[in-house]
Structures are given as C-alpha cells and as structure tokens.
Design a binder for these strands. Sequence first.
DNA 1: CCTCCATCCTGTGGGC
DNA 2: TGCCCACAGGATGGAG
Length: 275
Amino acid sequence: MPELPEVETTRRSLEPYLAGEKIVEAESRRARMLRRQPRERDFADRMRNRRVRGLRRHGKFLLIDLDGDLTWVIHLGMSGRMQVKDPGDPEARHTNVVARTADKEIRFVDPRTFGFTAVLTPDEYAESTLTRLGPDALTELPRTRQLAARLEGRKPPIKSLLLNQSIIAGLGNIYADEVLFRSRVAPHREGGSLDGGEVSAIRRAIRPVLESGLKYGGTSLGDLAYLLPDGQAGRYLDRLKAYGREDEPCPRCGTPIRRSVIGQRSSFWCPVCQT
DNA sequence: CCTCCATCCTGTGGGC
DNA sequence: TGCCCACAGGATGGAG
C-alpha cells in the first residue's frame, strides 16, 4: 500500500511535529519491527534525548536525520502507517513502535509487521540495503537514456522491473500499473525489448502519476488501509485508471480492464491500448 | 550478476 | 450464519 506518494505524504505530515524537536524516548513493542537494527537494544538507547534535524525520503524509505550523525529509518511495509497523537490518546491495535516528543507521541501502527525501523550510524547505513536503492522516482528521475540503459538486456517483464527498487525507487504495485497504463505499455513486455519511444513514454508517465497521487494524499485501499498521520484516508483510490478495475471499461477505449498475475503480483491493464 | 520464488505476518472478504 | 481459504499495497535472501 504505502508507495512513494503515501510515504511522501507521511513525511510532510510528520515534519511539523518532528523537525527541530527532541525525541525524549522511544520503544518498540515487537522485536520483529527492529529486525534491521543490527543490535536490537541500540534502538531505544540511540533515540533517547535525540534532536531531529530533518526528514527526508528515498523511494519508500522515510529517513529522519538525528543529532550525532544517526539516521532513523522507517519503512511502512504493506500495512504500516504513522500517527501523531497526544499522550494518553487510546492506542490502535498493533501500535508497535512509539516515539515521544515533549508533547506528542509518534506511533507506528503495523498489523502485518512487514514494516520495520532502525536507527543507524553512518557505517551501519553504508552496509545496509539502503545503498542499493536506485534513483528516487520523483526527485531523481533518470533521463530516458539512463533508464534505457538500466533496462537493457533485462529479461523480466517491465512491470517487475518497475517494482525493482534498485532500478528506480518508489513505485509499488498500484503506481507501477498506473504508469504503464499512462504510457500504453503492456506490463508483461520483456524489459529489454522496449524501444526508445516506449522507455521515454514510461519515463514521462512517472512524474504525473506520482504527483497526482500526492495531490490527493495517496491511495487508501481496504481495511488495512494506509491512513495519513491525522487519520484521514488518501483520496486517490477513485482516480486510479487501471489498478483494481478488472472488467471495468478502460477510460481510454472502453475495453474491459484485464487482470493478470505477473511476478506473483496482480496487474491491471488494458489489452487494447497497452501493447 | 541475474532471475525466480518462498517467506515473513495479520485481517478481511468471498465462496460454499 | 459459520468456516475456510485465498489474497493483500513489500523487501529480502537463498537457490539455481
């Protein structure tokens, strides 16, 4: 669920409550959430009395810069969401990580626990998988030639390659389908088979699709839905053109949208306009 | 290096 | 109504 627009929306929502503030203390109540923390006990120790310098994002990773050259890494996984609450506010089920500032609680709620968090030193960061992330899909979108070079010779379907965070960071299953719909490329096409025009079309589609998602506060789908830190649902769901619309008419040509499983993920696409 | 696939979890909705 | 199973936005690590 949380893809680049949802993570960026989260970043913007948290910023006023964290930037420049001091984290008084933090705790994880599910050890599994700290599985990317090299030594589990470091998390609480490093968070205590730590000033927040600023909030960044790379792909779907939220990166919170702390004093002492530490980075607080948050990944929402499939079902994670952040909340800003007052101390004493009732807690949602699956509130797995809590960080307290002078007057607020920042809560990480994640039923499926596919999300994770960690506070990393520069050395730990350099050894983490974060260094394998490709350019950010919104702020570092590569030129067509560079993108083509990254796809050259690749066998997997373009849909899978768009989900590969080391090629471009930030697209997930929903927005990858929307990008392919907009660029009129079929999801099962072998990545290396795309011509320059097709790669260019994909590249050109990425920004407007993500900006559009951002404009509407992201996509909230289902009951495990991603929600904004203030509890609001994202409003982009109704504006999706392909994702989740099996058998509904294609908004461009009216042909029923098809669902296929590609790389073990559902893909929704128009069999007429996407070739 | 690349590609494929199982796996980590919980909750929900559809089919019977 | 109740039960069971399939499925769900993601990332990773191991096998081949």
